[in-house]
């Protein structure tokens, strides 16, 4: 958030970690259900050493990025074409697009499994589907929200369609598109974990599911923490990218 955070603010994290470490050791809580951070860390070190951890992380990240990239590659150009060149057609389509955007992506998962089987394609398609709508909607809104004065000015200088697109519409719509990509990435990661829990043989979601089935509680915690960390990092890196690409924005 906008507030500046100092070292003091992270005391909370430290205190929590210490309490969590002590509680199972002192018998306050059942260490079977709440393993201490050290136990989780040990489990992590073990999986790291035999390489499985890296494998699951890369698999999950790869799936997320593939879905996100695929959705972006389709939604952004489509949004420009719809929002910029065919405003009437967009108006005509908008109830349908809204309908698709509102449908709970999870309820479609069985359908996707039905169509594409339980393999990679089903996972790709669910992520693709759930990223597609936020990116498409924000792109259309971004293109249509470009200040008309800018367009008027560029046209008054005799700028053609190409110049208008490259020099005015794309930079003008970029902040809005980025919001869509960020929302998409968050949703994608969430979907991925669920999809991996339902049907996969690798990935962090599978790790959670597998640990719970085999009752390996520290590994379950490890996977859950890793997913949270990865989600946070994904979010931060997109923020970072946004700030570097759109540095001209006022705070």
């Amino acid at each position: 958030m906008a507030e500046r955070r100092s070292g003091i603010d992270y005391y909370g994290v430290a205190v929590l970690l210490i309490l969590w470490e002590l509680a199972p050791r002192l018998g306050w809580i059942d260490s079977q259900f709440f393993p201490a951070p050290s136990a989780i860390f040990a489990e992590g070190a073990k999986l790291w050493a035999d390489g499985t951890l890296v494998l699951h992380i890369t698999v999950s990240l790869k799936r997320t990025f593939l879905g996100l990239l695929g959705a972006t590659a389709l939604a952004v150009p489509l949004g420009f074409v719809l929002g910029g060149w065919f405003p009437r057609f967009t108006r005509f389509l908008s109830p349908l697009l809204n309908l698709f955007g509102q449908i709970n992506a999870f309820s479609l998962f069985p359908l996707f499994v039905l169509f594409f089987g339980i393999g990679e394609l089903a996972k790709f398609s669910i992520i693709f589907w759930s990223c597609l709508w936020p990116i498409l909607f924000t792109t259309i809104a971004g293109v249509q929200g470009v200040e008309p004065l800018f367009i008027k000015l560029a046209r008054s200088m005799g700028g053609g369609r190409g110049a208008l697109l490259v020099k005015v519409l794309i930079p003008g719509a970029l902040p809005s598109i980025f919001t869509g990509v960020r929302i998409g990435a968050t949703v994608a990661f969430l979907m991925l974990i669920a999809a991996e829990m339902i049907g996969a043989s690798s990935g962090l979601g599978w790790l959670v599911h597998n640990s719970s089935v085999n009752y390996i509680i520290p590994r379950l915690y490890l996977a859950a923490l890793l997913i949270a960390l990865l989600g946070t990092m994904l979010n931060y890196s997109l923020h970072w990218l946004e700030n570097h690409l759109i540095h001209w924005k006022t705070s």
Partner: peptide
Amino acid sequence: IVLQGYALFPWR
């Protein structure tokens, strides 16, 4: 042309 609302491109 110079317009009323400046119309400076904020990304430039």
